[in-house]
Design a protein around this nucleic acid. Structure first.
Lengths: 131, 131
DNA sequence: CCGTCATATGAATGAACTTGGATATGTATA
DNA sequence: TATACATATCCAAGTTCATTCATATGACGG
C-alpha cells in the first residue's frame, strides 16, 4: 500500500471510530473524497501562483499603482522607492502569473493590469481586512 | 542623505532627463509620490498577509473545502490527504489572517470561512486563471 | 559604429516558509 | 484518576523566496 493510501486509511479509521458505524463512515469518506476531486479539478497550481504573486508588499503596491493606468518602470521606481532590479524582478513574476501585460515602445516598457478581476480581488481583500 | 532618499533622487534624475524639462519632472515626481501615499495609506501588510495565506496549495484547498460549510480537522485530513500537524499548522495561519473562524466543541474543533469575501476572491482568481 | 540609456537577467546571500515526526494540551469516558 | 482521543505546538531539515550588486541586452542619438 502506498504511503499516501496509508495516510488516508489512518484518517478514515479515525472517522469510523468517531461515527461509531463503520458503513456510515465509509460513506462519509466517499463523500469527502468526491469533494477532493472537485477541488483538485481546478488547476490549483495556477490559482496558487496568482495568489502568491499578489502576496508580496512590493508586488501588491505595483498592482495598486497600475490601477491608475499604464506605467513605465522608471515611474514605479519613484513611486515605490525601490531599486530598478527589484521592480523589474517583481514585474516579471506578475507577468508570469498573468496579472499584468507589457507593451514595449523603444527603450521603454509599459505595464498595465491584464484584467479587471485584479482590481476586484484587491477590493475584496480590503473588505476582509477592514473587518 | 539617507540611502532611501538617494534611491529616490536617482530615479527622479532619470525622470528629469526623460522628460527634458526639470520643472515638469519635479511636478511628475510629486504626483507619483502622492500616489505612493495613497497606496501606503492602506494597511498593506494586513492585505499581503491575507493573500500570502491564500497562496499555498494546501491552504487554498482548505478554503475551497470550507465553501461547503463547517468542517472539523479530521475531515480535512481525509479530504486533503495530509498529516494532522500539517492541516493544523495551515489552519492557524488561515485563522491569524482572519480568513476562517474556529468553534470548539469538546474534543473537536470546527472551522468555517469567516466571510463571503473569501469565496468571492476565489471566484475572481478562477476567472483570471481561465483566460 | 559608439556611448548612453532603460530594462532584463544572473548570482550570491540570508530570511522565511513548508513539512512531518515527536510531544504537549486539553477533553471525555470508564 | 487513568486512558484514549482530537488537536495544537515544537523542532529540525529541506526548500523556496526576496534582495541587490553586477552584468547583459537591446534601442536610440551622435
Amino acid at each position: 500500500m502506498s504511503l499516501e493510501a496509508e495516510v488516508r486509511e489512518d484518517a478514515a479509521d479515525r472517522l469510523a471510530r468517531l461515527m461509531g458505524d463503520v458503513d456510515e463512515a465509509k460513506c462519509a469518506v466517499k463523500k469527502l473524497r468526491s469533494l477532493t476531486r472537485v477541488i483538485e479539478g481546478d488547476d490549483l497550481n495556477a490559482e496558487v501562483n496568482i495568489l502568491k504573486a499578489m502576496g508580496d508588499p512590493c508586488r501588491l503596491a505595483i498592482l495598486k499603482f497600475l490601477r491608475e493606468g499604464e506605467r513605465c518602470v522608471c515611474e514605479m521606481m519613484i513611486a515605490l522607492n525601490r531599486p530598478q532590479s527589484s521592480i523589474s524582478h517583481h514585474l516579471s513574476i506578475l507577468k508570469d502569473a498573468g496579472l499584468i501585460k507589457e507593451r514595449k515602445d523603444g527603450k521603454w516598457s509599459y505595464y498595465r493590469l491584464s484584467d479587471g478581476a485584479v482590481i476586484e480581488i484587491i477590493n475584496q481583500v480590503k473588505l476582509l481586512e477592514d473587518e
